[in-house]
Amino acid sequence: MEEKKRMPFKGTKEQEQQLMEVIESYKGTDGAVIPVLHAAQDIYGYLPIEVQTMIAEGLNVPLAEIYGIVTFYTQFSINPKGQYKIGVCLGTACYVKGSGDILEKIKELLGIDVGECTPDGKFSLDATRCIGACGLAPVMTINDDVYGRLTVDDVADIFSKY
């Protein structure tokens, strides 16, 4: 329950303006929350408390209800994506070759969970399905770079390049 450190919110006035316009256009209509959340995620890339609060106040819906909806649907994210997006393949081939341990190591090194982003906004971490590079298992991607035949000890070295 204690609060984790997170990336500070860096929303701009323009983004807020855009969101307000969306909220205005949906105000008073039934089922406004989900389309507004989609639009907000397009504008900001994710849905932090600041954005959800603006939506709650704008649509007159409790913040707890907004948060409940955001966490119910997998397409919404409350965490930003990092400058470098790490993906660890948990497909069968990679998993058998130990990608689970790699994932654990990354979590430990970066101090974040799957779906989260480091407080400096540099790295975000996702678990992915098979990316079709089974020959290289276990595989990790960082943006467009692919790293294969990994061992747990390789991870720190690779991160130091970014």
Partner: peptide, 17 residues
């Protein structure tokens, strides 16, 4: 409206935002 249902399935629980 301080609390609501969050998450889904087994992770589902009543919580504040």
């Amino acid at each position: 409206g301080a609390i609501d249902v969050t998450e889904r399935g087994f992770k589902s629980q009543i919580a504040s935002p």
